[in-house]
Simulated assay, not measured.
Amino acid sequence: MSTTMTRRNGSASPDSANRAARQATIVAQKKDPVRRRWGRIGGGVLAAVVGGWLFASLYLSADDRVEVLAVASDVARFDVIERSDLKVVTIAEDTDVSSIPASRLEDLVGRVASTDIVAGALLVDGHLLPDGDRLVAADEAVVGVLVGPGDSPTTGMTRGAQVSVVVRPVAGTNGTVAEVPGWIAGIGGEVSSNGDRPVEVVVARADAARVSAAAADRRVTIVVLGE
């Protein structure tokens, strides 16, 4: 007796299934390079967009900056400003920091510093004496005097004012009162609680030691003279 075996309709042979799997793998491998290529293109476009944005930001930031003057080296009070003392720097245009435009550089050469200025500081008008203001001569000296409420007038004590520095003798001696001509170089900051205020007086170099010694003993009175 013999038995006949038949395949069911719709069933695939093992060989057919293997061939179909290999074909699907080949098709997938052919498609992968396309996907990778589009991925690289997309990454390049993104990098270009980001780079363009950064360039635009830097370009616009450069337009928002201005050139101003700064101090290249330390400048002492009453020094004459030289070209080598100044340099040009850039700062943000919308900053609240006081400054002087670089276009004024040549106009400021020869001006006199009204205060000590450290290297690197931005130059401002307050650092300079008014143009044409009186300067301390080579044969003059600046003496600091701490004057009390009754040792100077309440008005007229301004820079450049002509004064007479009255030097009183040491108490208990037979010395005489001396008057030393001078002018006011500057007035100190806040008045102390007892009414004292510092004043800088310019006198002849020959009189500086005498005035300084008298000021240390509180034996100085300042009288403002008329024009």
Rank of each mutant, 00 (worst) to 15 (best):
A161L: 10
D125K: 04
R168T: 08
T115C: 11
G160A: 10
V136G: 05
T90Y: 08
A161I: 04
V177D: 00
A76Y: 12
P153W: 13
D151H: 14
P181Q: 13
G188D: 03
S99Y: 09
V118W: 15
I100P: 06
T155R: 11
I187Y: 08
V143H: 01
V89M: 06
S84L: 04
S152C: 07
D85S: 06
A76C: 08
T154S: 07
P149I: 00
T158K: 12
G144I: 10
I187D: 06
A119K: 14
P101A: 11
S73L: 11
L123T: 03
R134V: 13
D116C: 08
V80A: 07
M157N: 07
D139P: 07
T115K: 14
I117A: 04
R104N: 13
V143Q: 01
D151F: 14
L105D: 11
V112K: 08
L123P: 01
S164H: 14
G110M: 04
T95H: 08
V80M: 08
G148N: 05
R83M: 07
D79W: 14
A92E: 13
D125N: 06
I91M: 05
V112Q: 11
R134L: 09
P149G: 03
H127G: 02
P153S: 13
S103L: 07
A92P: 12
V143W: 02
G126E: 04
V180K: 04
V177R: 05
G175P: 01
R159K: 09
V167Y: 01
G148F: 06
G189N: 03
P101S: 12
V124T: 04
V109W: 05
S164I: 08
W183P: 00
I91E: 10
A185W: 10
N174E: 09
